[in-house]
Design a protein around this nucleic acid. Sequence first.
DNA 1: CGCCCGCTAACCCGATAGGGTGATGGTTGA
DNA 2: TCAACCATCACCCTATCGGGTTAGCGGGCG
Lengths: 233, 233
Amino acid sequence: MLPGSGTTSENAMTTAQKTPITVLSVDDHPMLREGIASVIGAEEDMRLVGEACNGLQAIECYRRLRPDVTLMDIQMPDMNGIDATIAIRAEFPDARIVVLTTYEGDALARRAIAAGAAGYLLKSMLRKELLATVRNVHEGRRCIPAAVANGIAQHWHESALSKREVEVLQLVAAGQSNKRIGMHLAISEETVKVHMKSILAKLNASDRTHAVTRAIERGIIDLHACGQVGGSY
Amino acid sequence: MLPGSGTTSENAMTTAQKTPITVLSVDDHPMLREGIASVIGAEEDMRLVGEACNGLQAIECYRRLRPDVTLMDIQMPDMNGIDATIAIRAEFPDARIVVLTTYEGDALARRAIAAGAAGYLLKSMLRKELLATVRNVHEGRRCIPAAVANGIAQHWHESALSKREVEVLQLVAAGQSNKRIGMHLAISEETVKVHMKSILAKLNASDRTHAVTRAIERGIIDLHACGQVGGSY
DNA sequence: CGCCCGCTAACCCGATAGGGTGATGGTTGA
DNA sequence: TCAACCATCACCCTATCGGGTTAGCGGGCG
């Protein structure tokens, strides 16, 4: 899963005595940051140089600290980890960012990689995986766990939903009818139905409800954004 | 938010020198356990005596260690935290268990409390909240954060879904039609429609899709259980 | 330059969803 | 014992959904 991790860590160890790998941890869960801090702190060749609890703070911290590796959560208030990754990489193209998330949803992973993330870790990772990924990424390698890579490969052949289709599906998840969605997006109900047909085909779903659950599973839409729509019901 | 926590911790401190509060941590995320271990370990009046990563291990650990307070995650493989709490409380009615979860879904919180949990914490908690809750619960008080209490109060008037209704909704989430659900449960399609009507009313949802998203938000059904149904599509 | 693809739109039509009404039997608890 | 609730089933009816078909328009690509 992590090719050559044995020799890798030995190499890292020998160079580490002089300059430890500096790490920035970004997560809105204090306890998880605490765990990461504890694990990183126990390694001789790494040093945790900063913590942030949302995307905006992450950008600010990165500018100030210029860490070797950034561990970035996706779901965060104010600014999510994907957008923060894009922003940081735009300013510092060499930034090495490892994205952390709870879910295996392949869409999220693809967006993270598209945003320039060098690694992708599930929060169910073991300490060994975390450390190996930090060292790998620090040395310029990309590092994607097998489980996530599988998820991506599984849906690789399927084309991604277009922007419009995601908008429609988000409204479907909020319980809107095709007619209401049409009014909301200022398009005809017929057009909404065309989008729906495309959505059902792309997600291989049997009906709109199934499409929504599959989209949530795969990280294409998120539940928290659904409630705050239309609202007139 | 945690009334009298100041004096509480002082009291705890004075008794702590003799017998520290023993804590068992149950979570399938190693990093979060690491964080909890680090926080508990830093307190003089507490001692982490064991860790488990699923409900079955939790029961086994509890029997062996008899901790004063158990920190129990809900979402876990093999056996979830609610069932583990019920099992432990059945065997040891005095067990003081604090349930941890990522989501604020009120249904989950209500089930946890019904299962006999003495406390309920979100994983976004601060270390202060964790420690205050452990001390409170150890002294026999219940401890529910304001955010969770609000969620419960908000939906208090609404009656809970019946077992059958949850079954139906779970199949709806998997994209089954009323007819197929009827066949799957060996009941008439008409009966399924009656259940649906009741579900829509209880969840105040506009259609089946909306009902599913609201149920997921509130922890009534879970997405991971949906995919593994019927499957013939 | 054509070709593909996304967004738009309209039509037909059968299947499904969801509201209304009414009825039966079992369980639970005041 | 009676009320309340759950689960079951049936019929009617309208709105909505989802499949099939056709088609105009604009942008990107070989």
